[in-house]
């Protein structure tokens, strides 16, 4: 029976000692331990959150970089395309210009040649007329006493020739 009858002395000691232990541990052990634990948990959570944020930021940065790179690439392509076109245009223009100039030169040359030719021909005609006259004169001197009528006759012929 003694076993299940609580002893009053023991109860008193237990109550006093337990209360003292409780109060002392509360102040000097549980407070710092629980405080440090929750502080550590908070810091771990913060660190995890920060890491997550950094990861997101990194991803954002990367996406932005990619976008910038893509833009740069597009711009480069545009510039290259423009340059190519411009170059093509320039060559084309140069070609047209050159062909224009050359054709003009040819035209001019043709005109000059024509003029020269005409001049030369008229010269030749005159010369031929003179020669013919001279020759005819020489021939006719013997036959014709009056060369004035002769010359008129020849000139009339030459004029007809020129019309051709």
């Amino acid at each position: 029976m003694d076993l299940i009858i609580p002893d009053s002395g023991l109860i008193i000691w237990q109550a006093i000692i337990f209360l003292i232990v409780l109060l002392i541990l509360r102040k000097f052990a549980w407070k710092p331990i629980l405080g440090a634990l929750s502080e550590r948990e908070a810091s771990i959570e913060n660190a995890l959150l920060a890491a997550e944020n950094a990861k997101k930021e990194m991803a954002n940065l990367k996406a932005e970089n990619e976008k910038l790179l893509e833009q740069a690439r597009l711009e480069r392509d545009n510039i290259l395309k423009g340059a190519n076109e411009a170059a093509k245009q320039i060559t084309e223009d140069a070609k047209t210009e050159a062909s224009k100039i050359s054709s003009k030169m040819i035209e001019d040359a043709k005109l000059v040649i024509d003029t020269e030719k005409k001049a030369a021909l008229s010269e030749v005609k005159n010369q031929v007329a003179l020669l013919t006259i001279e020759v005819t004169e020489k021939i006719l001197r013997k036959n014709l006493s009056e060369d004035k009528a002769q010359q008129e006759l020849v000139e009339g012929y030459v004029k007809d020739l020129k019309l051709n």
């Binding site: 000097f28 052990a29 710092p32 331990i33 405080g35 440090a36 634990l37 502080e39 550590r40």
Partner: peptide, 14 residues
């Protein structure tokens, strides 16, 4: 035990 442990937490809880 608990004073030793508490001291460690006070010094370097994190």
């Amino acid at each position: 035990v608990f004073f030793t442990v508490a001291n460690r937490y006070k010094k370097n809880g994190v």
